[in-house]
């Protein structure tokens, strides 16, 4: 049975989704690193226009493009260019690469494809399926774990829904059959997990709740925990929770060498406390509205810059998720 009992590394495919700005890519990169540290061969797939993942391992890394490159021992990254994937797919279908090249040079074909929705998602997921299916000579999977940095939430679901739509819109033929395979993989709750990434802020919290609800109602894809990224630590040590009030109670003119006056000190502390309470409020809200356990990742002061930063997040990401009472 799927559930928080199964760790993130026990799946074959983890699709990471979240609103823009939630740090989805750093979660993907962290999971890739964690997988490699556990001896897994990991493939990381990006679908956006800009590559994020290689730069998170090494800020000087050149782009990997398609078909990709090993960016860290055990971690292969690629960015799926839909046209490259389509050419690869059609080449496999037709068997004659020259015909495919001819077709791709046709301007009208490009125009038609540019304007046709859905195929990019379908071909991308097709490539993901292919990565999951690839085998070595000894029959073991080429990649033990395939990670997808999916589009931002709204589009993320459309993305996962495309194979189903294709199956319903296309009546017969190879496209229908292949879409069926992809569809089957996505809905296999043992193999595949959708991992939402949220922030402890108002809009991401709400979007995550909506995403989880829609996934449950519409797609049947496994979803068993929520990552809440970049959560700031408590601003004051425990036992001093109302530090700002103590500062505010000091006479405004108290001489404090090297420090701003008590009202400014109190205002800084009060602001940090208010933001922290807001974070906690939204954490509780995400837990309540999704009914899912949370994985809380700490905010790093400088953001995620390199593989050392990823290593700091790996532990919390693989921890048993916390069930939080709202």
């Amino acid at each position: 049975m799927s559930g928080p009992g199964q760790t993130l590394l026990e799946r074959r495919l983890v699709i990471v989704t979240g609103k823009g700005g939630t740090g989805k890519s750093s979660v993907v990169a962290t999971l890739a690193l964690a997988g490699a540290q556990h001896g897994l061969r990991v493939a990381v797939v990006e679908v956006g226009l800009e590559e994020q993942i290689p730069g998170l391992f090494d800020p000087a890394a050149p782009p990997v493009g398609y078909p990709g490159r090993e960016i860290h021992p055990g971690v292969t990254a690629l960015r799926i260019d839909p046209y490259a994937a389509l050419a690869e797919y059609l080449g496999l279908q037709i068997g004659v690469r020259g015909v495919v090249d001819l077709v791709f040079r046709n301007r009208a074909f490009r125009q038609l494809m540019d304007a046709t929705p859905g195929w990019r998602e379908l071909i991308t997921l097709g490539k993901v399926w292919h990565l999951e299916q690839m085998r070595r000579d000894d029959g073991s999977p080429t990649y033990d774990l395939v990670l997808v940095d999916a589009p931002a939430t709204g589009h993320g679901l459309t993305f996962l829904d495309v194979p189903r739509v294709a199956v319903s819109a296309v009546r017969m033929g190879p496209l229908r059959r292949h879409s069926g395979w992809v569809e089957e993989m996505i809905r296999d709750t043992q193999r595949t997990l959708l991992l939402p990434v949220a922030l402890a802020e108002e809009l991401p919290a709400r979007e995550t709740a909506e995403l989880v609800e829609r996934v449950r109602e519409e797609t049947g894809v496994a979803i068993d925990r929520v990552v809440v990224n970049a959560v700031a630590p408590a601003p004051f040590p425990s036992g001093l929770d109302d530090l700002d009030r103590h500062l505010a109670a000091l006479p405004a003119e108290t001489p404090l060498p090297g420090l701003p006056g008590p009202p400014v000190l109190a205002a800084c502390a009060a602001h940090m406390r208010a933001r922290h309470e807001l974070n906690r409020h939204h954490l509780a809200e995400i837990a309540r509205d999704t009914g899912l356990p949370l994985l809380v990742l700490p905010q790093l002061p400088e953001g995620v810059r390199n593989v050392a930063d990823l290593a700091r997040l790996a532990g919390p990401l693989l921890a048993a998720p916390e069930a939080r009472a709202a």
């Binding site: 059609l90 037709i94 009208a108 819109a169 033929g173 190879p174």
Partner: peptide, 24 residues
């Protein structure tokens, strides 16, 4: 000339997508 290219494209699409899809 175009037509030959276009027909090739249409044939290809039909071959992959199956009959019926193009009609829709």
């Amino acid at each position: 000339v175009f037509q030959r290219g276009a027909q090739r494209v249409l044939k290809l699409i039909e071959r992959v997508s199956g009959v019926g899809f193009l009609e829709d």
